[in-house]
């Protein structure tokens, strides 16, 4: 480990923990720290390393992950998360457990939820030990609950849970999550209702005022009758019962050919 690294690490730690946190300074420090980590072979460690070095490297990467969220840089968070995987999986048996591990994992889960990557969400969830899955760790429980409610359709619970985020960083995802929910609800309404009073639509979609709702309705191309104060959802055109001739002919021909081979 190069000599400047510990000094910079302390610097990073202090400027990260300062309130309010000095984002710009952290970014600069992180950049140079990553360089020195790469020189020391600790950015993507292989084989045996000093335990202290590994812990420091992990701390730096974790701070980097949080810093990316605070500076609203999701792709950078993804990168830090991928780098942390080595520390969380391969060195899990040697390293002392990190207190920031579950927040980072929870944040990643939320990120996958907001990006509507449910399959990845579950793959990620599966790789957690079952103890953590059912345990009371608030950082993990939060995204797990959110996903369950989303899948069930209990959107109001998701809405109510937005203030219960266990960490500051979670709030960053709340807005985009709400956007996802609104779109979900909107598609549900389109198929489940013939018409809906404006006032009720606003409550269902969690819009505090009318103009937001009108904007949203316009975006989705809903028909609004201002006199009757209702939204009319245009029914999707009934699919016509059409006989797929080509398909039927093709399959009959294959049957004939196969039968020919057998007989």
């Amino acid at each position: 480990m190069s000599s400047s690294l510990p000094q910079q690490y302390q610097d990073l730690k202090s400027s990260f923990e300062r309130r309010p946190c000095d984002l710009q300074r952290c970014g600069q420090l992180l950049d140079s720290l990553k360089l020195s980590l790469a020189e020391a072979g600790l950015l993507i460690p292989q084989g045996h390393h000093d335990l202290g070095d590994l812990t420091v490297a992990r701390d730096i990467l974790e701070i980097g992950a949080f810093w990316s969220i605070r500076s609203q840089d999701v792709p950078s968070f993804e990168r830090y998360y991928a780098q942390l995987q080595t520390y969380y999986n391969d060195y899990a048996t040697v390293l002392p457990p990190s207190s920031r591990r579950s927040p980072v994992i929870g944040l990643n889960l939320i990120r996958l939820l907001t990006q509507n990557r449910i399959a990845d969400f579950h793959t990620e969830l599966e790789s957690l030990p079952p103890k953590e899955l059912v345990g009371d760790d608030p950082f993990i429980k939060h995204p797990v609950n959110l996903e369950r409610w989303l899948m069930e359709g209990s959107y109001s619970k998701v809405w109510n849970a937005r203030e219960e985020a266990p960490a500051e960083e979670y709030k960053f995802f709340v807005d985009s999550l709400m956007g996802t929910i609104r779109n979900e609800i909107a598609t549900c309404e389109e198929s489940a209702y013939d018409s809906l009073p404006l006032k009720d639509a606003a409550t269902l979609l969690f819009f505090p005022n009318r103009s937001d709702l009108l904007n949203f309705a316009q975006q989705r191309g809903w028909q609004i009758e201002l006199t009757a104060e209702i939204i009319i959802f245009s029914r999707s055109v009934e699919e016509k019962a059409e006989i797929p001739k080509r398909k039927l002919i093709a399959s009959s021909l294959t049957y004939a050919r196969e039968l020919e081979q057998i007989v």
Binding site: E152, G153, S156, I185, C188, S191, L196, P197
Partner: peptide
């Protein structure tokens, strides 16, 4: 838990094609 939830859940079920039906909100 609540009627509100029930409404969303039914709406989702209709959209996912689980049931054929309509919600009359009023």
């Amino acid at each position: 838990d609540s009627e509100e939830d029930a409404e969303y859940i039914v709406g989702k079920a209709i959209r996912d094609g689980v049931i054929e039906g309509r919600v009359v909100h009023e």
